[in-house]
């Protein structure tokens, strides 16, 4: 069971059915990133090109250390790339835009330990031009959507890892972004919790219609969650291939993962990652 509250009215956003093809919401053009080190310059990303469709759930998968986090940081405006650009609705991104929200991998460091759960979710809203009542309302709805209505007055360190990550997701949701960028969000939790959180994010996307870009090293997760899978590999990293996931809108941990289409996709992705990684 996923634990999110489907009885909640969706927040004011249109839920787009997957499968329609509107223009890209987020685009990456020729993005390269260089890091300076004592041994010289290191090229981490080399000419990455990507288009993320509005309403889509895009999973970027690749081996650890491939530069996926760097790519996500560039896409979210936290890092300006050495070369290339990121476009949001056609406009270049040079600082974090208001319509993107990020969920970080390390929840224990991205949540503020001196604030309660409620205040953690509320914090970004204080800088948005919304009334106090609206802020409270959004916070309540977001926490309900992730199944944490009862934890509003608790502190992050009093919660389990999975619950902390839910708080981080609620914080992103209350922000009402057009797109949610997630950096290996489920890598630091146990397998059981990971399955729950995966279903949670699917439900949240269905309910609120938000575009999701999720970065992960877990191939199963990428294929299970995504409408499309972008394979990033090599050193320096490039987009190997972009795959459409034809598993339909209804996903289930047990049955979906047993389907032959799933297995085929997974094998294909693994092959892509391994094959070109010589």
């Amino acid at each position: 069971m996923t634990g999110f509250d489907t009885s909640q009215k969706p927040m004011t956003m249109e839920a787009l059915p997957t499968g329609t093809t509107p223009g890209p919401i987020l685009s990456v053009r020729g993005l390269s990133q260089r890091y300076q080190s004592r041994a010289g310059d290191r090229l981490v990303l080399d000419g990455v090109d990507l288009d993320i469709r509005q309403g889509s759930f895009a999973c970027i998968v690749g081996p650890s250390g491939a530069g996926k986090t760097t790519l996500l940081r560039c896409m979210s405006g936290l890092l300006t790339p050495s070369e290339g650009e990121v476009l949001l609705h056609g406009k270049p991104v040079d600082r974090p835009p208001a319509s993107l929200a990020v969920v970080f991998q390390d929840y224990s460091r991205s949540l503020m330990p001196w604030m309660s759960v409620e205040h953690n979710v509320l914090l970004p809203l204080r800088s948005k031009p919304v009334s106090k009542q609206e802020r409270v309302e959004r916070t309540r709805a977001a926490l309900a959507a992730v199944g944490l209505s009862g934890a509003t007055d608790q502190y992050p360190w009093q919660l389990s890892g999975g619950m902390q990550q839910r708080v981080a997701i609620a914080r992103a949701l209350a922000y009402q972004p057009e797109a949610l960028l997630m950096d290996e969000p489920f890598a630091s939790v146990d397998a059981q919790t990971r399955a729950e959180l995966e279903d949670l994010i699917l439900g949240v996307r269905a309910e609120f219609g938000v575009t999701v870009v999720l970065v992960t090293h877990d191939i199963d997760e990428a294929v299970y969650l995504g409408d499309e899978v972008v394979v990033l590999s090599g050193s320096p990293a490039r987009v190997r291939e972009r795959l459409e996931v034809d598993l339909g809108a209804e996903r289930d941990q047990l049955s979906t993962k047993a389907r032959p289409e799933f297995v085929a996709l997974r094998t294909r992705v693994l092959g892509l990652i391994r094959g070109k990684n010589a």
């Binding site: 936290l78 600082r95 929200a101 990020v102 970080f104 991205s110 970004p124 204080r126 800088s127 914080r171």
Partner: peptide, 9 residues
């Protein structure tokens, strides 16, 4: 990162 990404005042 959180402060920048969520554009906190």
């Amino acid at each position: 990162d959180v402060a920048r990404s969520y554009r906190i005042g």
